[in-house]
Design a binder for these strands. Structure first.
Lengths: 275, 275
DNA sequence: GTTCCGCATGAATCGATAG
DNA sequence: ACTATCGATTCATGCGGAA
């Protein structure tokens, strides 16, 4: 019997992250408020201010993340005056200067982004998932996210299986059939850096910025049970809910009181995990 | 009867672009050599040098492009020392300083990306298609690239009963209901900014960096017949071949003599177009 | 004339080994 | 220590020969 802790902190990430000890977090997964032209909305930071606003927070993230931990940032720049803003590009460069390694850029392909039409552009149906690390060596559990092999394989391999396996065994004779081991259990493969998920329909009363499968995928990939996940912009709490369900400790910080209450309702204060 | 001209120039883009008149090109579609760690390979430019190497070329591109024209750049940064290089980000910022507008970033999802397995990353399965313009107003022929409606949309529309539509119309007036009425009975929709194509499998004697459908899509989207397409890094000539077949004039520049000959063999010197 | 299957082949990346 | 080269790993695709 193990306890899974899910901690919700209400307030500003810039002030409250000091409560979190150094090198204590295995995964940071967050989707910060995107820069917006309009001020005075939730987290209304303009594109110009964005990097300066973010850097103090990421400095704290760098402090609390374990050396083997990973920071995943879900973000997509908006269109301002017919152009894509460049603040995300500038943020990546600034984070590297701050000491982060920019390990990878995953792409989330939002399959069913809602229809719409503009004269000078098509619907935006992808978002960036930027992976940053403190060191070149970090924890990654690739087998946790294997996916079924593509449909092409079913057609190609269906008549091939039994006869081909025996033939390969006979031919090699001596050694342990190298090829055979490749074919056996070949119904899953490793994924790529393109993540194919539908956006969630907001069937509940609150809408999340991303579907539960998105944090789930990264939590599987970068953490094990009993590890700790941090979301400094918890929003409606999707990351925390998923982390708790998956047996990971989690910490969420959220500045909007109504979201805070929502998260507290959504998560159990302490969940018992059977080991 | 109209003549379609396909011009192949052998040599260095930096020197030979001066032959092209100002404001004469409708679309630049190119895939420059990606930055490479090793020197002394084809186009061996290191990541550090890349921006400085590219800017003189893009200055010429800015000159020859029509005010309503579009520049599409296919590129993807490699991994260097366990990190993604940042030269593409820096290039985008530098191009904006040079006067280009960064209108959009399309995503090419390569379904059959190069295989491999590593301890710290998955296979890279996408490339950037950066769209730059000289002005906010540019030519775009969206109807030319309509795609068959996706299965998800079929399901969605199928389950959408009359009452649903009325209710939605009543609820928020504009928006969903209106769009749906546009959709009903249609079997094509506008695409998104994610392009889903497999790379060409080179069992032929020529290999191209990208499949013909890639330039084809952008040529459809940004040009009409009799327009002019430029590829300053023509490579095996895919862009030119496609442009010619689609009834667009084209100019290609290529520095490697053997590729040059290949292109000249692949394209007809002057194609007769029946109007 | 179809359909089926074997095979080669990539805009790759890491880690070990060698100079 | 620092760089250059090489082998191992892996999967979707289209061609061509076979059934």
């Amino acid at each position: 019997m193990q306890t899974i802790e899910t901690k919700v902190i209400c307030g500003d990430s810039r002030e409250l992250m000091c409560e979190i000890p150094d090198n204590s977090v295995d995964l940071i997964f967050t989707s910060p408020p995107y820069a917006d032209q309009r001020k005075s909305t939730y987290g209304g930071v303009t594109p110009d201010e964005y990097v300066d606003w973010f850097l103090p927070i990421s400095a704290e993230l760098l402090r609390v993340l374990k050396p083997t931990g990973t920071f995943v940032l879900n973000i997509k720049e908006k269109v301002v005056d017919s152009e894509r803003s460049t603040y995300v590009l500038e943020l990546i460069l600034a984070l590297r200067k701050q000491g982060w390694l920019w390990t990878e850029e995953f792409m989330w392909h939002k399959k069913n982004s809602f229809p719409g039409k503009w004269s000078n552009r098509f619907r935006d149906s992808w978002e960036r998932l930027l992976q940053f690390n403190k060191n070149k060596k970090f924890s990654m559990y690739q087998d946790a996210v294997r996916v079924p092999i593509g449909d092409w394989a079913k057609d190609r391999l269906k008549n091939l299986s039994e006869t081909d396996k025996t033939r390969d065994n006979a031919k090699n004779g001596s050694g342990f059939g190298k090829n055979v081991s490749n074919w056996v259990g070949k119904d899953t493969v490793y994924p790529t850096n393109v993540i194919h998920l539908a956006t969630e329909c907001n069937n509940k009363n609150h809408s999340a910025a991303f579907p539960e499968q998105l944090p789930e995928w990264f939590i599987k990939l970068f953490t094990q049970e009993q590890d700790t996940v941090l979301d400094p912009f918890a929003g409606s709490g999707t990351t925390l809910v998923v982390a708790q369900r998956m047996g990971r400790h989690s910490i969420g910080i959220e500045i909007m009181p109504e979201y805070c209450e929502m998260i507290k309702d959504a998560v159990e204060p302490a969940q018992q995990l059977l080991l």
